[in-house]
Amino acid sequence: MNAPQTVMAINLVVNGVQVAREVEVRTLLSTFLRDDLGLTGTHVACEHGVCGSCTILVDSQSVRSCLLLAVQVDGTNVETVEGLGSLGSLSPLQDAMWREHGLQCGFCTPGILMSIEGEVRSGASAEAICDEVLSGHLCRCTGYQNIRTAIHAYFATKDES
């Protein structure tokens, strides 16, 4: 009998870049993104799928990257907060969060941004995002009020353009 396979090759697209790596099969997707690819914007705050800080998009669907293994995203298109916008060129959603003071310590923020991004793509309304999607995230600093304000502000600018 063969020894169990402990390492696997995976191919995927991360923020538009083709990536090929060998990973230990037990490696969490969040660990792979942070440690192997250096994408440290994806934060890990509970490792049991409750807090939402590690949320990313896999084929445009929001997922908890702490609840997936890296080998499970072989062949997919992965997007992280690093793909949303850059320091000098924030995305409209990032800019709304900045303008409305929708973050304090900023640790939960990347996950919230990615959840909202995924829901916007699937056509969710501002109300649905504020009422339901945001409740899939723990934020200990803001009390959520300014995040809601930012979501509405973002939709207002999106609808104008």
């Binding site: 994806t42 949303l84 923020t109």
Partner: peptide
């Protein structure tokens, strides 16, 4: 905020 919003913070 811009660094925190873009995943460029250094925790």
């Amino acid at each position: 905020d811009p660094r925190l919003l873009t995943g460029s913070g250094r925790f």
